[in-house]
Design a protein around this nucleic acid. Structure first.
Lengths: 248, 248
DNA sequence: GGCAAACCTTGATGCAAGTCATGGCAGCCG
DNA sequence: CGGCTGCCATGACTTGCATCAAGGTTTGCC
């Protein structure tokens, strides 16, 4: 079975990205797109990326306490990461969609401090971190890209702090929905109709709200004709209305 | 005027750290200590670090919107970083004490998205980022160290999300006080008596609380004999009591 | 000194979201 | 089938913190 990027670069349909090679379904764009790597450099990167069998729903990609070895890229499906504190309280720290990278919080330690599980059947690329480090020494673009990737993660987390610390429950949920919507849209799927891969409980946990509150707000948004909600299927009916809530 | 690390390595009093050279007041330990660099490597790093005049209270180290060029290390004093959203609402994203590095959220973009200002008279080392990147290509330890530094920032932000999303006002403030206390203690100052360099408003902003709430909790903690509070001077009277609140 | 501005404290009141409780619905299995 | 379990929705009630308001303290400046 070909490696994901090798597969991508060998597919014949054209790719709009500036590295000028075809990249198939573009699911690795989080790695490919901003890199501006030469073709032979992409091939070098590809050589260290590993893909295993898909993960089933609720299956762990890694567990807190186990040795840190790799970071991961979502190819399909969805993943949540979460930490459990001393009192056993779980905190969801992120949702990751196709093309996104997770596991960077493990870099600081020899062992994982958080866990990652698949929210639905998901295929995931594993990128061994020591090999990535080595390769980064000879590919300045790759090094820079990874610094930027981590910086973006920091910015996201800081935005989340602001969202939770300063915004109402309505605003928090609206912001999350728009975020997921636009992340789906970037993969050129319809942005306004999408499936929420996570439970109401996960959403509430992530946003610092209770399940009941999340549920009530979904109900209210539907009454206000902002959304059409059918279990996990979401359709945004009034994009501007939501954006006003989310303060864009 | 010597560069900070150069100065550090040339000072004669012994240094307990494993790089085996004397390092003066150890204020650069955030950079020196975990690096495990050889002496000549430290000297290489030192060559790119710049130190300017100290910053006065309320003076900007960098401003949102200006070009990103460097990350910074606090040598003395204290710094806060903050972002301002579209509605003009400020969000304090971090407090940085001597030995700590800030400005890593700028790496993802060509321009700063947050600002940093001195909370009191502070001296700060500037580390030009493009030179740091170059040097990291030839010093694997340095590259790894910076990856770890950024990872730690991510972990901190995620902890803050959990703190704000799941904990009461009391718990949030107790946690912040213990954090500052232990960061002071690491610099071998007395950990239980310290000066808060930031205003009540900054604390509230950072923790997702109002000034009034912060003030009330200080009052309550004092009544409960957890703290002795005199304006910005703090003394922890009941460490265990605070730790229980903070869930350690 | 005296005034102004910035910062901090304290009290009274209201509301957003948490808590508790109940019921519906889909999927699963003996 | 009927009962069980997990997830979601909704109502009644409670509460922690924000809001509004007022007063105290410190700092700096004329």
């Amino acid at each position: 079975m070909p490696h994901p990027i090798a597969m991508a670069t060998s597919v014949s349909n054209p790719c709009p990205h500036r590295h000028g090679v075809s990249c198939g379904d573009c699911r690795m764009k989080a790695l490919c797109l901003p890199l501006a790597l030469e073709l032979d450099q992409i091939e070098q990167l590809d050589r260290i990326v590993q893909r295993g069998r898909p993960f089933q729903r609720d299956e762990y990609i890694y567990r807190a306490g186990t040795e840190f070895r790799s970071v991961y890229a979502v190819r399909s499906g969805a993943v949540k990461t979460f930490a459990v504190n001393d009192q056993g309280v779980e905190q969801v720290t992120g949702f990751y969609l196709p093309g996104e990278i997770f596991g960077m919080d493990g870099i600081a330690h020899t062992h994982h401090i958080s866990s990652a599980i698949a929210l639905e059947t998901s295929s995931v690329c594993e990128i061994p971190f020591n090999r990535l480090e080595e390769l980064s020494l000879s590919l300045p673009n790759l090094q820079r890209h990874f610094f930027q990737l981590m910086s973006r993660e920091i910015i996201n987390d800081q935005r989340l702090v602001a969202l939770i610390g300063k915004n109402s429950a309505d605003e928090r949920l609206a912001t999350l929905l728009l975020s997921i919507s636009s992340r789906n849209a970037q993969r050129s799927l319809s942005g306004l109709r999408f499936r929420l891969p996570m439970s109401r409980a996960d959403i509430g946990n992530y946003l610092g709200l209770t399940v009941e509150t999340v549920s009530r707000i979904f109900g209210r948004f539907q009454k206000q004709r902002l959304l059409k909600v059918d279990k996990k299927e979401i359709e945004i009916l009034d994009l501007e209305g939501l954006q006003e809530l989310a303060n864009v």
